[in-house]
Amino acid sequence: MFKAVLSDSNILKTSFDAISSIVDEVQMMADEEGLRLDALDRSHITFVHLELKKGVFDEYQCDETLKINVDTEELMKVLKRAKAEDMVELTVDEGNLIVTFEGEAKRKFKIRLIDIEYEAPSPPELEYPTEFEVPFSLLKDSIQDIGIVSDKISLQVNEEKFQASAEGEFGDAKVEYVHGERIEESARSIFSLEKVKEMLKADKFSESAVIRLGNDMPLNLALKMASDEGELSFLLAPRIES
């Protein structure tokens, strides 16, 4: 028996907006602790991890470990139909994930489960020299600003500032933010702007983002729900001088 009820439909909608732009299919794991997924995109550039502990849900019931394999695009098409005030209920039957929206009316969708042969990958454990927090909206704005001049973005941090910048053929752009945190080293890596943009589609998950940066290391971006019961995080491989 699996049943999960969520009053904030935005959590699923915003998570899968990002997830569906990164991977075509996912294996969600449900157990008594909650729901989680780990997925790696086809070209092994972005890794995504979603964890919704049972405390996130208004009601959560799961007697045995369950693998829920879905096509992310199909799931996203359904989640887009959720209205902000709808309660969302997730259940499974033989071969389907059942998504029910309950508001003015009760609307029920069945999404066919798919076969996924491989095991979900586990995230690599990397040691980072820096970790700091920035407002999510600032990151979103930075992407827009840097996108004016380039399709790549350099992210760097030092004792005082976090900086997003790019040098383009026709001009340069730079965003500086005083992070106010204790950072003892500086770090810089370059990323594909398009890939960062995909991650930042999850703009209703959290007000702030925890960033870990190293030199020519993957970008580790974590969005955490205020309750600490939910996390959506990403690892993005850098662009490296060849």
């Binding site: 092994h44 890794f47 690599p124 990397l126 020519d216 993957p218 491989a237 490296i240």
Partner: peptide, 12 residues
């Protein structure tokens, strides 16, 4: 000129 790396290099 830099190029896109893969996470595989960091997974192990």
């Amino acid at each position: 000129q830099e190029k896109q790396s893969s996470l595989d290099a960091f997974f192990n």
